[in-house]
């Protein structure tokens, strides 16, 4: 029994010491170049998507592209800070429903497929973006809540 424990410990230690440093998601997406490709593919997909295209009628596409690259870089642990508006601000007044959200996810997956992103890295990025769902779908809850929260903080401090 004790021998088994020792063997298990040695095996564990060996496993730890030989495991190379895990690449960040940013690296697995192909860093700045890869993320740029994904975003450009996504813009192409949106361009052919009748469900989503109307929402971009008044959008400054080059700014959208730049901020989305920045955001995906930050979300994937890359060396960037997202400087765009909050998800609530961006999606306010759009009256989005699940069919829109699904359509964007589908286009993003297609964009990643096209860019040759591996399934595991795709799942990782999706898992990091999905928590934004509530803020995207219910922007009013966040925009209205922001000043109230700050006020409350001031009072308690």
């Amino acid at each position: 029994m004790r021998l088994l424990t020792i063997i298990a410990l040695i095996w564990l230690l060996a496993a730890c010491s030989t495991t190379p440093t895990q690449p960040t998601l940013y690296e697995r997406l192909g860093e700045q170049e890869g993320i740029t490709t994904i975003v450009d593919n996504l813009l192409y997909e949106i361009g052919g998507n009748d469900t989503l295209l109307p929402f971009f009628a008044a959008t400054n596409i080059s700014r959208f592209r730049e901020k989305l690259i920045e955001q995906l870089c930050q979300v994937s642990d890359g060396p960037c800070d997202y400087t765009g508006d909050s998800m609530a601000q961006v999606h306010a007044g759009m009256d989005l429903n699940d069919s829109h959200f699904n359509a964007l996810v589908t286009d993003l997956v297609a964009a990643m497929d096209e860019a040759g992103v591996a399934t595991g890295a795709q799942n990782d990025l999706l898992a990091r973006l999905v928590p934004m769902y509530d803020e995207v779908m219910n922007p009013d809850d966040y925009i209205n809540a922001e000043p109230t929260d700050t006020d409350a903080n001031r009072v308690t401090r």
Partner: peptide, 9 residues
């Protein structure tokens, strides 16, 4: 559950 088991859903 996304990215839950061996990076799979």
């Amino acid at each position: 559950y996304l990215h839950a088991l061996f990076e799979r859903n």
